[in-house]
Amino acid sequence: MERTCVGCRQRSSRVELIRVVQKAKFLVFDSTKSLPGRGAWLHPVTNCLELAISRKAFNRALKLTEQIDTSGLIFTTEQAETMLANK
């Protein structure tokens, strides 16, 4: 099953992407890809994350009306690889 990265807008399989969901007033990574609610999909690279934040893509993808805190969405390459390995 393919999903679209909210950063670069490229389609990739679900196992290659990280899911992001809203939890309270924050955005968090859903490493299990099973948290309830609407999710946005993102490649595990900094460039895609920066593009998504600058384009306010999370607000559109998650259908949010208010500005959401994205400060918790910083990851290193090692963290991204770990999240993908725990499919």
Rank of each mutant, 00 (worst) to 15 (best):
S71Q: 12
A52Y: 08
L35P: 00
T46I: 03
A24V: 03
T77M: 07
K63T: 02
R60Q: 04
K25G: 12
K25I: 03
E81S: 11
R3I: 04
S54Q: 12
N47M: 14
R3N: 04
A24D: 14
L27A: 05
A52E: 09
T70P: 06
G72T: 13
D69N: 15
N86V: 00
K56S: 04
A57M: 11
G39D: 01
E16I: 02
T32S: 15
V28A: 09
T4D: 02
N59Y: 04
V45K: 08
V45G: 05
H43K: 09
G39H: 00
D69L: 08
F58R: 01
F58T: 03
A57T: 01
Q67H: 12
G72A: 09
N59E: 15
R38P: 10
L27S: 02
K56Q: 09
V21D: 01
V20R: 04
T82F: 09
V20P: 02
Q67S: 14
I53A: 07
A24W: 02
R55W: 01
V21L: 00
E16L: 14
R14A: 10
K56A: 04
S71M: 01
K87W: 04
K25H: 10
P44V: 04
E50A: 13
R14G: 10
R14F: 06
R3M: 06
L17K: 08
K56R: 13
Q79V: 10
Q22C: 00
C8Y: 01
F58Q: 06
L35V: 00
L49K: 12
T65V: 12
R38D: 05
D69C: 06
C8W: 01
S13W: 09
N59D: 07
S12T: 11
G37E: 03
E2D: 11
N59R: 13
K23L: 11
L64N: 07
E16A: 14
R11Y: 02
I53R: 14
K33Y: 02
V15A: 12
K63Q: 13
T32H: 13
S71W: 08
E50H: 14
I18E: 03
R55F: 03
T70C: 15
K23A: 11
V28D: 09
T77F: 04
A80E: 04
L84R: 13
T65C: 08
L17V: 11
M83H: 07
K23F: 09
A61Q: 00
